[in-house]
């Protein structure tokens, strides 16, 4: 029962978690819970993508709704403009979003820190308003509606799971490569990184490209799964961009598994409250579903700066020995 966290045993938990997720739709025969898990898996993708750019490369984005929305609209426009299946969006949503990412990087990467964050908010809002007003192209606020291809949730579930695994896997691989070190170097000290000959613009762009690619895919998936989009849903500052950040923070900024954990916490916590603990407690509790999440965010930032995953050892100590105090230094994953 030593205080040291046994790192060797982590893969076990991870493997079991993934196995659980793979078997989940077979174990649980309820479309409602499958739906919740699909949404959570989609948030795993968005949160992890945000985390690569912001948590690992240090460019805090408040505009991930741009990529999500562009991906979703790429898929949607296939049906409205070309009368083709929205599934083509799964092929092109990522690349289109990546191109948008390149342009946005070109504009924004000359700015640093809070200025970068502000610029991403501004661009996000511009995207939303243009999508709302360019009616001949996007249908404006009438939105785009399609009919889901499958009635069963299972295909969507495995697609979302595949997307989540691909996203987290790619990010894990990238971070093990040379790129990953460059990203972190830029986050820690951009000037020092430049001095060492790392082109910060180039690596920030690469990070943004991967990040926007997966967020765009998540957007295209959303179009296919939810079958209805409008600009206020997919380009939402509050419900997409900021949620992406909160998912990352709750789980742990700059950890590979953090956003995944954060996504599940967010979706399940909100739904638990929204349904008043599945009808077990009085209904007024459901009104507090976002409030509780907000309080959790404040709590995590205040007391667990590295999120649930980043500060896991801290939580464990708290659990086993309430009095034990130590400050584990966690750097990255």
């Amino acid at each position: 029962m030593g205080n040291t966290f046994n790192w060797r045993k982590i893969p076990w938990a991870k493997v079991l978690s993934v196995a659980f997720l793979v078997l989940f739709p077979l174990l649980v025969d309820s479309d409602y819970y499958r739906h919740l898990f699909i949404i959570a898996l989609m948030w795993v993708v968005i949160g992890s993508s945000w985390n690569l750019l912001s948590g690992y490369t240090g460019q805090v984005s408040f505009g991930h709704a741009i990529f999500f929305g562009v991906g979703a609209y790429t898929a949607g426009l296939f049906t409205t403009k070309l009368s083709m299946s929205a599934w083509w969006g799964m092929l092109l949503g990522g690349p289109v979003s990546l191109l948008v990412g390149i342009v946005i990087g070109w504009i924004c990467f000359r700015l640093r820190g809070p200025y970068f964050a502000l610029a991403t908010i501004a661009i996000g809002e511009i995207f939303r308003q243009v999508a709302e007003n360019w009616i001949s192209f996007t249908e404006g606020m009438q939105g785009i509606l399609i009919i889901q291809t499958f009635r069963s949730k299972i295909p969507y579930y495995y697609l979302a799971l595949g997307l989540a695994i691909a996203c987290v896997g790619t990010i894990a691989l990238v971070l093990r490569s040379k790129w990953g070190f460059y990203f972190i170097a830029i986050r820690e000290d951009q000037d020092a990184a430049e001095a060492l000959g790392i082109s910060s613009y180039r690596y920030k762009s690469l990070s943004l490209m991967i990040s926007s690619f997966f967020t765009g895919l998540a957007g295209a998936f959303y179009m296919n799964y939810m079958a209805f989009i409008d600009p206020q849903v997919v380009f939402s500052l509050h419900y997409i961009s900021i949620m992406a950040i909160l998912v990352g923070i709750i789980g742990g900024v700059g950890t590979i598994w953090g956003p995944a954990v954060g996504a599940f916490i967010m979706v399940l916590l909100q739904e638990t409250f929204r349904s008043s603990f599945y009808g077990l407690v009085p209904r007024w509790v459901s009104e507090a579903h976002v409030l509780v999440f907000g309080l959790l965010v404040i709590f995590v930032i205040r007391y667990m700066a590295n999120g649930m995953v980043g500060d896991w050892p801290k939580i464990q100590q708290l659990w086993s020995r309430p009095k034990a105090v130590s400050s584990p230094s966690v750097s990255g994953n």
Binding site: I10, W12, A13
Partner: peptide
Amino acid sequence: MKKFFRFSLVLIMALALFAPTA
């Protein structure tokens, strides 16, 4: 015993969630 801690937490959460709806 901590090796299963994380996993069991997931499991508990799952069990709590999927308590059969009468």
